[in-house]
């Protein structure tokens, strides 16, 4: 099948029941293109033929006929697909400056949440998506030449205790199955909201760059940061800043000039939602 995901068409070949079930649930709102359509990304997941398949069945990920990654346990085919697709995009889509960030939109303006360890980016992103923000992406800030951000809505992977946090915070959130004992612990995906998928051809204007930091029980504090600090953090956190060279520098520079930049520490999702809502309505 050829799946339309944001600006990309992804050809997926797989005969793995767990993956088929995952795709038909998590991607059910996404457009399907005719099988002979052009595909930007071509992947195949398959069970390797070895004696091990009788005892510890595994799954491999292939792009353009070439295997990448070590095999995963067969039951982890869905997270392998998600990580593999991230890898395919991050290593190929150099028409964009690709920020490693969650991006959400309200009123046509985009909030960029760069990913750093301990930021709680995906949890925050899932929470905002269920409080009226449109998901552009949980993983990629796709910055065009004109500085607008293109959407790439995909299931949001939550890890470990974040799964319970989002179940409690947004009971309406549709979560996929839990995958225990992955390399990142237990992982479960949150399905993008219908509005996020329906509007995945609508780009957004960058407005805010916020570096989040989760600190248990901390008071929510949003503090402006110098432009140079935001520039360097954003550039070094991008997937392809160095690949793009001078063009990467120019795109980061334009983003910094167009956005307000903040550090944000928080301990409760409710506080975070309130602060981002007021940011969106104030300016």
């Amino acid at each position: 099948m050829v799946l339309g995901v944001g600006p990309f068409q992804v050809r997926i070949r797989a005969r793995i029941a767990a993956l088929t079930g995952f795709l038909s649930r998590m991607y059910r709102d996404f457009p399907l293109h005719p099988p002979d359509s052009f595909a930007d990304v071509r992947v195949r997941l398959y069970r390797p033929r070895s004696w091990r398949r009788y005892f510890q069945p595994q799954v491999c990920f292939e792009r353009d006929g070439k295997r990448i990654f070590h095999p995963f346990p067969l039951s982890h085919a869905p997270p392998l697909f998600e990580w593999g697709l991230n890898w395919c995009i991050a290593t190929r889509a150099h028409q964009y400056l690709m920020l490693h960030a969650a991006v959400l939109e309200r009123g046509g303006r985009a909030l960029i949440l760069p990913a750093t360890p301990g930021s709680g980016k995906s949890t925050l992103c899932a929470a905002l998506m269920h409080r009226g923000w449109r998901l552009l992406s949980d993983e990629f800030g796709l910055v065009r030449e004109d500085s607008r951000l293109d959407p790439l809505p995909r299931p949001i992977p939550l890890k470990n205790e974040s799964i319970g946090v989002i179940r409690a915070f947004a009971p309406e959130a549709e979560l996929g199955p839990e995958f225990p004992k992955t390399r990142k612990g237990t992982v479960a995906h949150v399905k993008p909201t219908g509005a996020s998928v329906r509007r995945m051809e609508e780009s957004a204007v960058p407005a805010w760059i916020v570096f989040p930091r989760f600190q248990r029980d901390a008071r929510a504090v949003l503090e402006p940061v110098p432009a140079s600090y935001a520039f360097l953090r954003l550039a070094y956190n991008a997937f392809n800043y160095e690949v793009l060279g001078a063009e990467g520098f120019r795109r980061v520079g334009r983003l910094i000039h167009r956005c307000r930049h903040f550090n944000f520490s928080y301990g409760r999702l409710e506080d975070a939602v309130e602060i981002f809502d007021s940011l969106a309505s104030a300016s």
């Binding site: 110098p226 140079s228 520079g253």
Partner: peptide, 24 residues
């Protein structure tokens, strides 16, 4: 022509297109 600048009141960042490095 190969050195690009971003300037702010107290700091600036330059990109050296010959080395591919960014400097504050």
């Amino acid at each position: 022509e190969r050195i690009l600048w971003e300037r702010w009141p107290d700091e600036c960042i330059v990109y050296n297109d010959l080395s591919g490095q960014t400097h504050l």
